[in-house]
Write a protein that binds this DNA or RNA. Structure first.
Lengths: 326, 326
DNA sequence: CCACTTTATGTCAACGTTTACCGATTCTCG
DNA sequence: CGAGAATCGGTAAACGTTGACATAAAGTGG
């Protein structure tokens, strides 16, 4: 029996009698034989590796991203390689080289890597397919999965405004992250829709981390007049704002309402539980992996739009209330 | 120029003149040429892939594990493939097949997979090297990186006992996780050292998740007499216990002290901040990856012990106090 | 029963790289 | 200047699998 026959038997290819097929499979089982993936990759010109690159430090975000992608990959044909990378903005070509050297079939790009034109250029030049998860710019480039950040930002700001808040502090995330700008744009729309002017001096910049969030939230809370609410651009910074308020003797939500973003684990374990926006990270990652694989397998029928928007969900919990409410 | 010469030039092998080497490298740069990894793997009989398998749901644990391993892999020679797997205990062979099919050079096993003898047997039979992170049983098998769970459990229990607590509720994690047993053993030692009897009826079983932790902690808190302290086997369940206490009108730590385990993100963002034990997950993962790679590269000098213990660190924060203290 | 189709099995080459080996050129030193 | 060594470049084979193609065997129809 030639290797060829074995190959045909194991791959359920035609032109093998059922008897031989059974015998081969039994023997393979017996010997714990597994085809050599490197050889398969060499001839198929594919590695069956999907990369996932990200930078955001939040563990829950990273894990949601991974689990979403892995959920789509669970048949085991493709494998997921994690490639975190810091400071993409300052050295996109370096990440590009890393990705190209990794021998991937395709790559899932989370923020902020998905918004680096230099990186996308490199990947396209080398014909390495990619899917972008919640990019902010060049939304018609490649496979794109987004949440409408602006609509989400508008929803959460409108929530605070509708409860009567007028002095609202805003804690931005890392400005190089696209989400930061989109969410801010949404805040502005909500304000302008109600013709409430935004006090630009109440806008401070964090970097999505707890520590910096605490510091900048504190600067807002020692101002006079003090804002009655804080819009934080993610949950970690929102929780930090609550801690800063507590350390200043302020009760949440009685003296200060706080809203976050992302519906992360801490938004539920925090006290009071955070009003936040659920970004369907897992579903978006699943979708991105799904469409990337469809493209790799050539099953993309060309009719599916390259871009798909997933809906946000405003989660109103205990950290927001009307100003001065009990 | 033959492919051979190119290969030698790029790999800094001898027998190539410096002039040719420079020319080749310049051309490679120019053309964005990258050697085909599948071909290299085929001939080297290695995939340069390291697997990481885990089951624990806690995002911060998973991310610490990954970051630790990735920290060691950052030269880019090896790549990290993530392979989460649920319910290992009930189907270890299935995970084994998954790992063997993935074409890995080596595998990092986190709990509870690292404690499945059937799995270890399969890996050994197929000569797939592995490193075990905080296993509980068969500690002399393969590369082992541990924290002394028992000593850590003893330390945290001793902390509560030394403050005067005598009625202490214990919330176990998933009993199939090895850490759970080791930590419990440490609790018992602390009690017996002070000759305080353990009330077995105050021991309840969770599964390391917040939701179940909340439920079982609640059953402890509605008992009479009510325990004055709770030892939870991880931070998620400890935070859940705090929430359960609060929902019953109990103040932490005035009416109830709570101690956790793992020094996870939530232990810091929780309020009050959790007394907990720092398990140096990142360092252990780094160490496991380091020694696995040393073995793969044949650089293991044979003198390094296969097992290495990392020290725990008791972090006393605001969630524990003497019973009835203000 | 022969020509013809279908099915089963085998042979060969190819994927892109590296290792082993060989011949040619250049260098070193007596 | 010549012998031996070191250096440089090249050729062939190998890694394990699969696709294209060939051959053999079996089935089918007139």
């Amino acid at each position: 029996m030639t290797p060829k026959t074995v190959s045909r038997a194991l791959n359920d290819a035609p032109h093998v009698s059922e008897a031989v097929r059974q015998k081969v499979k039994a023997a393979a089982e017996e010997l714990d034989y597994h085809p050599n993936i490197a050889a398969q990759s060499l001839i198929a010109r594919r590695s069956f590796l999907i990369g996932l690159t990200y930078e955001r430090p939040s563990p829950s975000y990273v894990v949601e991203l991974q689990n979403g992608a892995l959920g789509r990959l669970e048949d085991g044909r493709y494998r997921l390689v994690v490639l975190p990378f810091s400071h993409v903005a300052s050295r996109p070509e370096e990440l590009g080289r890393l990705l190209l050297r990794a021998g991937l079939d395709g790559i899932l790009l989370a923020p902020p890597a998905c918004d680096q034109p230099a990186l996308l250029n490199m990947l396209e030049r080398q014909k390495l397919p990619y899917a972008r998860i919640t990019p902010h710019s060049e939304l018609d480039r490649g496979i794109v999965v987004t949440m409408d950040e602006t609509a989400a930002g508008q929803a959460v700001a409108a929530h605070l405004l509708s409860m009567g808040h007028r002095l609202i502090g805003i804690v931005l995330g890392d400005p190089s992250h696209a989400a930061s700008m989109g969410r801010m744009e949404g805040y502005r729309r909500a304000f302008s829709e109600l013709q409430v002017p935004i006090d630009e001096s109440l806008i401070v910049t964090g970097d999505f981390t707890y520590d910096v969030g605490y510091r900048v939230a504190r600067t807002l809370l020692i101002r006079s007049p003090r804002p009655t609410a804080i819009l934080a651009q993610n949950d970690d910074m929102a929780v930090a704002a609550i801690a800063a308020a507590r350390d200043l003797g302020l009760a949440v939500p009685h003296d200060l309402s706080v809203a976050g973003f992302d519906n992360s684990e801490v938004s539920r374990t925090a006290w009071p539980q955070l009003t936040t926006v659920n970004q369907p990270v897992r579903q978006m990652a699943w979708d991105a992996a799904d469409r990337l694989i469809a493209a790799l397998d050539g099953k993309s029928d060309g009719t599916a739009p390259l871009r798909r928007d997933h809906a946000h969900e405003l989660l109103i919990r205990a950290s927001t209330a009307a100003p001065g409410a009990p």
